[in-house]
Nucleic acid binder design. Structure first.
Length: 791
DNA sequence: AGCTGTGGCAGGGAGG
DNA sequence: CCTCCCTGCCAC
């Protein structure tokens, strides 16, 4: 049976499994020797927090009390697979709710715990919960947003402070209905009761909100508790279950309070926006208003009210605030429509419900596919392998400067293709589910892409696109799963084989392009930017050229043109700018564009790069002179020179690691502590530097951005002029030293002449393939650089 | 109660 | 000055 389609017919489908009431059921893996010998390590067994759960079901169990740190009190194991299977079936019949959880090993116990919602790892839930065979448009989605009153003098709203309260509850759905519960005509307890009534009557499948986990739901629950109201919005009449959770987005993670409403699913567009941004990296903030504008969902006549002015508007212009709140829920609906569809379609393939899938990382998704099949075939599963990958993608730069024209070629789905062609899979995965599902997902994605071409309406297109992108997300995670040190089926050596093969393929392509008289400028993992040979003129020529190069590739690996550009400014590895044929400039890399770079610096770099790409040396000079003057004259505002950084640690863990000398004090944390901000890891803080000389200690001379006033500007001019110098130095590789000094000097505008100044193109010596620890190499001061003719 | 990976650049603190 | 180490941010 196709593991991806498991449970897609009614015979195979198993209804939701979980604990009942406050009785919790957990799944454990037990060391093989206790039950049955096998070539693998673990069998699944149950752990229950209350053994009477199983006794109630008449299951014969072996119960042992644990002591010490383990917070579960009882263990139960089964003497045979059939007994366990019977127990699962019984539970299924008797327990209608859902669960959630995770995996953890206990070093001192022969158990591997699946703290995850016991059985959702193993078994499919009801068709309605997994939305098998349904379309996104069939869901009933309700959007919710609350506005709160903040007592004077406070910076943040707080559900526990006297005077703070809910003033508006804005609601809408995807069937054209919208409504405001208005605190002018109702008491707050009446508002809350009305909300519970409306949710139960409307009976939506999904409840959506922007930052609903961390703000709206906790606030609502706190207020309900104060009024003694049961927030019973579950389909079974129960109130939400709350637990702390965290979601990781590439290098950072955010904490949030997950809520589960029985029978419904919660979608937090704040999390979805961040998840989207880990791939695109183009959002400046994750706020609703910014995100709605970014995606083009903001109406022209949309009302904007600064968060700190909400209470004022409530007192003076409540009607405007009502419109504002309705605009919020509408934007939430549109955002969610755009960002949650792929999770919806993924749900149909995974043994998790929609709300869980939207919160889950990709490794957990892959593992659930594997686990489901292993349990179905009643096969034991391995323990995670310790260790780490040793290799990654190949990245290199061959030229700096302005080059043209540019073709960008990508090896399509490099790592997945390698895994399929070279048959790379976890070594401890005898059932072959890894390769089978990867192959099947790839096949389904190609089929979806083909049918997209035949789609007639825009709605159909976007639906198929969501489907194929949900395949893509999973497919691209298979490689990451191999190297994940907590994955049950991980295989570090296999992960290394994948990346090494990828590196080889890239090097082959680089050689082939060079031998065909193309000029490779920059490469990274699976893509190459190069200048085609002079004989290649038209777009068709380029296509033929790429086709010819692609002939050297192994079977199953395909090359495609990912983009064509007028010019490229190549700066450093993973740092470059592109000038498209649409005259748009795209800047890549943390040293040229980064959210932690001050706004004035980002603008300076952007405009400077624009000048370089257009060979406008005069413009570059005046850009520098003007900015230098503005900084000196205090003509910038706090928004221009503020630095915004993410606080990745909690205050406790920051202070602990500073105390133990593990890390140094940092301005961002110090400023947050000094201002008594209450932050969660993942929150961002904006600050600026004060003091009167450039050699300040940053963490001792910083203030929150709010502390700055135009009347008494106390930003450290010397520091920011030094920053400007740091930004200009990024242009150093593009000019002769004397030209560089001329351009970035305060010489009078009319005295400056760009004559004779050219943008340099330099060849950068390629990194050694095998870094041999050889004396000669170490003594060499710098990579060899050849100066070449400018363009 | 949860978490996919490596490679690369920049900036700051601390100590030589 | 310089180097080391760390964190943050980004490309893929």
């Amino acid at each position: 049976m196709n593991p991806l389609l498991y449970g897609s017919n009614n015979e195979e489908r198993i209804v939701a499994v979980s604990q009942y009431g406050d009785r919790t059921m957990r799944v454990f893996f037990r060391e093989e020797d206790t039950i049955r010998s096998t070539d693998h390590n673990f069998f699944p067994f149950f752990l229950v927090s209350d053994s009477s759960v199983l006794r109630d079901f008449g299951v014969k169990t072996w119960v042992k009390e644990l002591d010490g740190e383990n917070y579960f009190r009882y263990l139960c194991a089964f003497s045979s697979w059939n007994e366990m299977w019977d127990a699962i079936r019984l539970m299924i019949e008797r327990t209608p709710q859902e669960n959630s959880g995770k995996i953890e090993t206990y070093a001192d116990l022969p158990f591997l715990q699946l703290r995850t919602d016991a059985v959702s790892q193993f078994l499919l839930q009801s068709g309605r919960t997994l939305f098998k065979g349904m379309e996104f448009s069939e869901l009933h989605r309700l959007q919710l947003d609350i506005e709160t009153y903040t007592s004077p003098g406070s910076r943040f709203s707080n559900a526990n402070r006297p005077g703070d309260r809910i003033i508006i509850i804005a609601l809408s759905d995807n069937r054209g209905w919208s409504y405001c519960i208005d605190g002018k005509s109702k008491r707050e307890d009446e508002m809350l009761r009305e909300l519970v009534r409306i949710i139960c009557e409307k009976d939506p499948d999904i409840i959506e909100g922007h930052n609903i986990y961390n703000f709206d739901l906790p606030y609502l629950l706190t207020r309900c508790e104060m009024f003694g109201i049961d927030f019973a919005v579950g389909r079974d009449g129960t109130s939400p279950r709350v637990f702390d959770s965290r979601m990781s987005f590439a290098e950072r993670y955010v904490k949030y309070s997950a809520h589960e409403i029985p029978g419904r699913h919660i979608i937090d567009t704040w999390l979805l926006v961040q998840s989207y941004d880990t791939q695109k990296r183009s959002l400046e903030s994750y706020g609703l208003k910014y995100a709605a504008k970014y995606f083009g969902f903001a109406k022209e006549d949309r009302i904007y009210i600064q968060p700190e002015r909400i209470s004022w508007y409530w007192d003076h212009e409540p009607d405007l605030l009502l419109r504002y709140a309705l605009d919020d829920v509408e934007e939430t609906r549109l955002l969610s429509e755009h960002l949650s569809q792929s999770s919806f379609y993924l749900t149909q393939m995974l043994p998790y419900n929609y709300g869980a899938v939207a919160r889950m990382g990709s490794a957990a998704k892959i593992e659930s596919l594997l686990m489901r099949e292993y349990v179905r075939q009643r096969h034991s599963v391995p323990k995670p392998e310790r260790g780490a990958q040793t290799s990654g993608g190949y990245a290199d730069i061959f030229y700096t400067g302005v080059l043209q024209p540019i073709v960008d070629v990508d090896v399509e789905s490099l790592y997945p293709s390698i895994m399929l062609e070279e048959k790379i899979a976890p070594s401890r995965e005898p059932l072959g589910v890894f390769s089978a599902t990867l192959g099947e997902l790839t096949r389904m994605r190609l089929a979806a892409k083909r049918s997209m071409k035949a789609a007639t309406s825009e709605g159909e297109r976007s639906q198929i696109d969501a489907l194929q992108s949900s395949f893509k997300i999973l497919i691209n995670s298979y490689y990451g799963y191999l190297g994940y040190n907590r994955a049950l089926f991980n295989d570090m050596a296999a992960a290394d084989r994948v990346t090494r093969t990828g590196q080889q393929i890239l090097r082959q392509l680089i050689t082939a392009i060079g031998e065909s008289a193309g000029t490779v400028v920059e490469v990274d993992t699976d893509g190459i930017y190069f200048v085609p040979p002079p004989s290649v003129q038209s777009e068709e020529d380029e296509e033929r050229f790429v086709e010819r190069i692609a002939k050297i590739l192994p079977k199953g690996i395909t090359l495609a043109i990912a983009g064509r550009f007028q010019k490229m400014l190549s700066y450093k590895t993973k740092n470059y700018a592109l000038l498209g044929y649409d005259n748009r400039i795209r800047i890549k890399g943390s040293s040229l564009t980064s959210r932690s770079i001050e706004k004035f610096g980002r603008n300076f770099l952007l405009q400077g790069i624009e000048c370089l790409l257009n060979n406008n040396i005069d413009g570059l000079h005046s850009l520098y002179v003007n900015l230098h003057r503005d900084i000196s004259d205090h003509a910038l505002t706090a928004a221009d020179f503020a630095r915004t950084e993410t606080l990745k640690e909690s205050i406790e863990s920051y202070l602990t690691s500073v105390k133990s000398g593990e890390r140094n004090r940092t301005a961002s944390y110090e400023v947050a502590i000094a201002a008594e901000l209450e932050w969660k890891p993942g929150d961002r803080v904006s600050y600026y530097f004060t003091g009167s000389d450039a050699g300040i200690k940053a963490f001792e001379n910083c203030k929150l951005i709010d502390a700055w006033t135009a009347d008494s500007p106390d930003e450290n001019v010397h520091y920011y002029l030094r920053r400007l110098d740091e930004f200009t130095r990024k242009f150093e590789p593009f000019f002769q030293p004397s030209d560089f000094r001329k351009i970035f000097s305060l010489e009078d505008l009319f005295g400056f002449s760009a004559e004779g100044i050219h943008v340099l193109r330099q060849h950068v010596a390629q990194k050694e393939l095998n870094e041999e620890e050889d004396e000669a190499d170490l003594s060499r001061p710098d990579p060899k650089i050849w100066l070449e003719e400018n363009l």
